[in-house]
Nucleic acid binder design. Structure first.
Lengths: 192, 192, 192, 192
DNA sequence: AATGAATGAGGGTTCATTCAT
DNA sequence: GATGAATGAACCCTCATTCAT
C-alpha cells in the first residue's frame, strides 16, 4: 500500500530502459534508423509506445544513448589494451578484440557504420565520436612505431582503413567473408 | 504542330530521365535515401513531381537505375584495366582508378556505401551487385598472383577490404583523409 | 505509528486538495486549459500525478471545483454589498469590488473569461453560472433604479457589458489599460 | 491531355484554400483552437488531411490566414467610416457596423475573442493586431471629441470597453442578449 | 494518503503515389 | 510528354488516466 521506494523504482526504470535500448538496437541494425519506427521498438520491447518517452527525449536520443553506452564500454577495452606489455602484444590484443567485437557486437557495429554517414543529424554525438577517434590515432601510431614499422603515421592510417574495410565487408557479407582468416593474416603481418 | 517523331520523343525522354537521375543522385548523397523526398528530386531536377513516375516505377526504382548505370560504366573501366600489359600495370591502373573514382564519383560512391547496409530493400539490385563482386574477385586474385604475391587469395581479400576502408574513410572524413598518400602507399607496396 | 485520526486525515486532504487547486489556477491562467498538463499541475503543486485523481475525477473537474469555490466566495461579497445603506453606496461598493477583484483575482478572472467560450465542455458548470448571472440581474436593476436611473433594465445590461469589457481589456492589456481611471469614471457617472 | 494552365490551377487552388478556411473558422468558433483537429477540419472541408498542408504551413498558419483576411476586410470598413460627413454620422456608422458585424461575423468574432488571451502563440499575428488597435484609438478619440464629448480620451476607452463587453456577452448569450436594444441605446447616447 | 511507471488514443505533420487535365 | 492538386497511410510525439505498490 505504501508507494514504491526510490530504489525499487530505480530497478524498474533501468529494466524498462534496457529493454527498450536492446529492442531499438536490434531493429536499427536490421532496418536502419529511418526504417525503424518508435511503434516498432515498443512492440519489439513489449512496452507501450508512450513509455519510450519516459526514458528518451526522442528517437534520436535512443541512438544517442546506445552509442554513449558503447563508447563507455570501449574505454574499458582500451585500458586493457594499454596494459599489455610489448607493442606486439598490444597489436595482437587489438586484432583479437576486433575479431571478437565484429562477431559479438554485430548489431552495434552495424549501427555505428550506418551512423558514420549522418553524424550531423545527431548533434550531441558528433563531437564525442570525433574526439574519440582523434585521441586514439596518435596512440595507435605510437604502438605501430614500437613494433618497428617505419613511417608509422602512414601505416597506421592504412591499417586503420583496412580494419574499417574488414568490418564493412563482414557486415555486408557476414559468413561469406573469411573474418578469421583476415585477422590471422593481420596478426601474422604485424605481430611476427 | 505536327506530332513529334518517335526519335524526337526518345531524345526528350532520355533527357528528362537523365535530369531526374542526376538530381536524385545529388540529393541521395547529401541527405540519404530516406532524407530525400520525391518532391525534392523533382524540384532539384526542375520537373514536375508526376513526371518522375513516367520514368520510374517508384523511389526505389530511381536508386536501382542509378546503380545499374554505374555498373555498366564499371564494365568499360574493367575492360580498359585488362588491356594493360603487365600485372604491375594492371595494379597501378586499378589504384589510379580508385583514386580518381573516389574523387570524381564521390556522390555515386557514397550512395553505394549507404546502400551496402540495406540491399535487401532493393530486391532487383542485390543479386546483380553480388554477382559483379564475385565475378571480379578471381580476376583480381589472378593479377595479384601475377605480381608475385604469395597466397594471393587471402591477400586479394585483404587488399579489397583495404580499398573498401579507404573509400569509407574518405567519404566520412573527406579532405581530412590523406587519400593521395594512401594510394601512393599502395602503389609502392604492390607495384614495385 | 498509530494511524491518523479521521480529523487529521481531513486536514491533510484539504491541504493537498488546495495545493492542487492553487497550482492549477496559476497554470490555467498562464497557459490556458489545453496548454496545461496534469503532469504540469502535479509538478507545480509538488505532488505526484496520481494524487490528483484522488481528489478530482478529471482535469475538467479541477476547473469545476475552482469555479465553484470562486462562486461561493462571491456569495459573501454579494451579502456585503446588500448590507450597504444607500443605492449609491451599493453602486460604489460594486465598482470598488470590481477594481479590487480585477487586480487581485487576476488569475481566477482570466480563467472565467477563457471558460466563457467553452462552457459546454464543463457540463455541471454551465447551469450554475447561468443561474448565478440571471439571479443577479434583477437585484442589480433594482439598485440602479434606486439611484434614479431611468429605464434601469436597459442601463443595467449596458453597464454590465461595460464592466465585462473593462475586465476583458484589463486582462489583455494589463498595465497598459487605465483600470483605475475607468473605475473612477464609472463612480463619477453612477454615484454622484 | 495537356496539363492545366496556371490560371486553371489558380482557380482550383483558391477554391480548395477557401473551403479549408471556411471549415476551419466554423470549427474554431465552436470547439476552440485546441479542440479542433486538423483531421476534423479536413473532414468538415471535405478534403484529405494532407491537402491542408499544401495551403497552410501548420494549424497555426490557418488561424493566421483567417485573421489576416479579416483584417484586410476591416480596412475597407474603416475607409467607409471615415468617408461619413459629420462626427455623429461616423459614430452612427460605427455602431451600426458593430451591430451587423456581431450578427454576421459571429464565428470570426468569436475566434478573435478566443485568440485575445493567447496571441503570443501566434507570433506573426500579435504585432499586426496590436498595431491595428493602437492606430485606431486616436482616430476614435478624435471623432468622439468632435461630437462634443468632454474628456474624450477617457470616454473613448470606456466606450471601447463597452463595445468589447457587448460583443462578449452577445457571444456567450447569443439571442438571450438584447443586442439591438444595446446598440440603439448607444446611438441614442452618442448620436443625439 | 501518496507515488510514479505504464498505457494507448489521438494529436500535427510528412510524403510516396495517383490521376485528371 | 508533362503538370501539380489530391490522397491517405504512417510517422513521431503528448498526455489524460490507471493501478500496483
Amino acid at each position: 500500500m505504501s508507494p514504491r521506494t526510490q530504489a525499487q523504482n530505480e530497478v524498474i526504470r533501468e529494466h524498462s530502459r534496457q529493454k527498450i535500448l536492446d529492442a531499438a538496437l536490434r531493429l536499427f541494425a536490421v532496418k536502419g534508423f529511418d526504417g525503424t519506427s518508435v511503434s516498432g521498438i515498443a512492440r519489439e520491447a513489449g512496452v507501450a509506445k508512450g513509455l519510450i518517452y519516459n526514458y528518451f527525449k526522442s528517437k534520436e536520443d535512443i541512438v544517442h544513448q546506445i552509442v554513449m553506452s558503447g563508447i563507455s564500454e570501449s574505454d574499458h577495452v582500451f585500458a586493457e589494451l594499454m596494459a599489455q606489455e610489448t607493442a606486439q602484444d598490444k597489436m595482437r590484443f587489438l586484432f583479437e578484440f576486433v575479431r571478437t567485437y565484429l562477431k559479438e557486437r554485430y548489431e552495434y557495429n552495424k549501427l555505428l557504420h550506418m551512423l558514420a554517414f549522418r553524424l550531423e543529424e545527431f548533434p550531441g554525438l558528433i563531437d564525442i565520436v570525433v574526439a574519440k577517434q582523434t585521441s586514439m590515432m596518435p596512440l595507435f601510431v605510437g604502438i605501430l612505431a614500437d613494433t618497428g614499422v617505419e613511417n608509422a603515421e602512414r601505416e597506421a592510417k592504412l591499417l586503420s582503413a583496412t580494419m574499417d574495410g574488414i568490418g564493412n565487408q563482414y557486415m555486408s557479407l557476414k559468413e561469406k567473408f573469411p573474418l578469421d582468416e583476415m585477422i590471422d593474416l593481420l596478426i601474422e603481418k604485424y605481430c611476427h
